[in-house]
Design a binder for these strands. Structure first.
Length: 424
RNA sequence: GGAGAGGUGGCCGAGCGGCUGAAGGCGCUCCCCUGCUAAGGGAGUAUAGGCUUAACCCCUAUCGAGGGUUCGAAUCCCUCCCUCUCCGCCA
């Protein structure tokens, strides 16, 4: 959610900057609703003020043993008038709120203009895509005889799920452990275990609701419960409705969770293999910092995600997402794309974003500034560190050998009982 | 699942339907006294919104959430949520 004050004071420049992401702000509607709100609110509040004053008089008169009937008569008509005004104010505020909640975050100045991923700007590359002197397979081919089993998953559940057996499953788990250890021991994140089911308030807070409900799995319980699409939701909502002290900053959390996404609207995309699944594992990094530090935190967090790929010696590039490709709440996003020999392409493996106060305002996540004594909104940053399933794909494809085996990256061998090679 | 108790400010904890945005305590900030690893005295200390927009003042809302009764609700009624205790079941 944007700062309503900013919209009131600087509507034109907000609209201009939102255009970078292709969002057209309905300025007239906002101005209209806002002016109605103002008059109505003043009306309601002064009515309430009068009623309160009159009521106090009645109280005093009664205590003094006076006849209160004339006072009661004087207030008699106020009730209905107040009720009517309150009702229309409520409706108006609802409309304004809906409008506000539907406005995406303002892109940072450094976000390039553009409509889709073809307009993203590549910032840097790391590592050299290996050239193979044999015909490379993709992970589906490589996994076919090694325990990556889509057919059984289809039987158990349906499409876009996977069952893994044996050493492939072990490799998958080793990746998770390696990532968790790196972030918690070296990068300063506190490891957290969180629920995989959250309520609608939490999804509201991080911005998945109300606009993107169709992307989520909703549970058929009496409560408004959903499976998490990312650990960002529970981790960030730890701070919802909290005012934390300066000693608790920077707030840095890492969690490993499954993620559940309905993938509505992506029919036909990435149907092969485990690039796009309804259920996948992810290690998520979340930071909450004071406003001045959020841009630096984004760079740092992106570096932490890159560090995993470097340790695994997987070639990647970092792109700066253009306005049109930016997520709803992000002011800026770096996508990290890993090289996949099977696709001869770089594919997203992490998405690191600075939300500034966008999420914090929705969830009233604040810290108390000791210099002013006042609470201030936090800035939130998050990113994958990394998507485990896609990392598994990248390891399989980049480490494949001519004889059909897969070399285990050095960094993972301790997690696999010293195993250095996965054979057929 | 059954029975009971309870949810009040950063924390603890009072609160007959009216002068309670909320006693008292703790914590914190500032000042005074004293002086050395203590103590005493005084003042201040919620959030959001409106108005102003430079600030103050003022006004409105908020005592788990939402409704209701009433001129007036932290206080009465209803619904829901959560926490705790006991019993049952269970990884």
């Amino acid at each position: 959610m944007l700062d309503p004050q900013l919209l009131r004071n600087d509507l034109d420049s907000v609209a201009e900057r939102l255009a970078v992401r292709g969002y057209q702000l309905d300025k007239e509607q906002f101005i209209e609703l806002e002016s109605q709100r103002k008059t109505l609110q003043m009306q309601v509040e002064s009515l309430r003020g009068r009623r309160n004053a009159e009521s106090r008089k009645i109280g005093k008169a009664k205590a003094g043993g006076e006849d209160i009937q004339p006072l009661l008569d004087a207030v008699a008509s106020m009730g209905s008038e107040l009720k009517a005004s309150e009702q229309s104010l409520l409706e108006l505020q609802q409309k304004l709120n809906d409008l506000l909640a539907g406005i995406p975050n303002i892109p940072d100045e450094s976000v390039p203009r553009g409509n889709d991923e073809s307009d993203n700007i590549e910032l840097r590359r790391w590592g050299e895509p290996k050239s193979f002197d044999f015909e490379v397979q993709d992970h589906v081919g490589l996994g076919a005889y090694r325990g990556m089993d889509f057919e059984t998953a289809a039987k158990l559940t349906g499409s876009r799920y996977v069952v893994m057996h044996g050493e492939i499953a072990l490799l998958h788990r080793a990746l998770t452990q390696f990532m968790m250890d790196t972030h918690s021991r070296q990068n300063g994140y506190i490891e957290s275990y969180v629920p995989y089911i959250v309520n609608s308030d939490s999804l509201q807070g991080t911005g998945q609701l109300p606009k993107f409900e169709e992307d989520l799995f909703k549970l058929n319980t009496e409560h408004d419960n959903y499976l998490i699409p990312t650990a960002e939701v529970p981790l960030t909502n730890i701070l919802r409705d909290e005012i934390i002290s300066v000693e608790e900053l920077p707030f840095k959390r890492v969690a490993h969770t499954p993620c559940f996404r309905s993938e509505a609207g992506s029919y036909g995309r990435d149907t092969r293999g485990m690039i796009r699944q309804h259920q996948f594992e992810k290690v998520e990094l979340v930071q909450a910092v004071r406003a001045e530090e959020s841009w630096q935190a984004l760079e740092e967090l992106t570096g932490h995600a890159e560090g995993i790929l470097q340790a695994l010696e997987l070639p990647y590039r970092v792109v700066n997402l253009c306005g049109g490709d930016l997520g709803f709440g992000a002011a800026k996003t770096y996508d990290i794309e890993v090289w996949l020999p099977g696709q001869q392409a770089y594919r997203e493996i992490s998405s690191c974003s600075n939300f500034q106060s966008f999420q914090a305002r929705r969830m009233q996540a604040r810290w108390r500034n000791p210099e002013t004594g006042k609470p201030e909104l936090l800035h939130t940053i998050n990113g994958s560190g990394l998507a485990v399933g896609r990392t598994l794909v990248a390891v399989m494809e980049n480490y494949q050998q001519q004889d059909g085996s897969i070399t285990v990256p050095e960094a993972l061998r301790n997690y696999m009982g010293g195993l250095d090679k996965i054979l057929d």
